[in-house]
Amino acid sequence: MLEINRVKKVFLKGTVNERTALDNVSLTLKEGEFVAVIGGNGSGKSTLLNCISGVHFPDSGSIKLDGEDISFLPEYKRSKFIGRVFQDPLKGTAFDMSIEENLAIAWYKGRSRNLKPGLTRKDIEVFREKLARLDLGLENRMKDKAGLLSGGQRQALTLLMAIMVRPKLLLLDEHTAALDPSTAKKVLQLTRSFVKEEKIATLMVTHNMKDALEMCSRIVMMHEGRIVLDASGEEKENLTVDKLIEKFEERSGQTLDNDRMLLA
């Protein structure tokens, strides 16, 4: 359903700071696949997701979603079928608007933003039900500003907003990295159940190999803008954190001195 074909992205081309963030990356996702993307800092994980979501356009190569070439489609147009949760909890919600108003903005995704009421009584009932599933008590605080929520509550809310109108593809960029361990666990559990129930093809960037191995059906490892490992099926089932580290060192020719990546 998602076909990334030899995508290249170079930042600050022609300057001394030129960086090849993506070096002819190709990746194909099947319907309902839950893929973890791992790799060290600066390996190009975020850039990959940003090219898919339209924050950046690729320098060369193509990105297709359900057969449609979206390589140069503006970000806001792609958002209609791509859900996103960012690393920064502040990025996902409008802080000065209430929880229900935030949800309403996500709820009317793909529909006309006209002069009909932005939030109806019926909407509120739907939202209450959906919020209850987060099990954070937010269904009783729907009139509170999103800015009053904790980071974890906000990420859970953003996750709900990202999947409320079922997207074709879900992109998660270290969406639990800014949370404390127990909150992160909670948000990850929510992620897992949403992705499973809705069968949404998902790319999840994470630094936590253990989570990646536990939750995902496929592991993609990046290094210096290239995919150096792509394990699924039996190969993935046989992987352990130690084997992953071993493979990383073997394929990158570097020892893994990245603390964050070992945080398993």
Partner: peptide
């Protein structure tokens, strides 16, 4: 009344968080 419409909502959110508005499929 305008600020309470669907368009009004995204208008208000644009000042708060453009990112989120674009992620909701709206041309900011």
């Amino acid at each position: 009344l305008f600020l309470k419409t669907r368009f009004g909502f995204v208008l208000r959110a644009t000042g708060d968080n453009e990112n989120m508005v674009r992620a909701s499929g709206v041309n900011t």
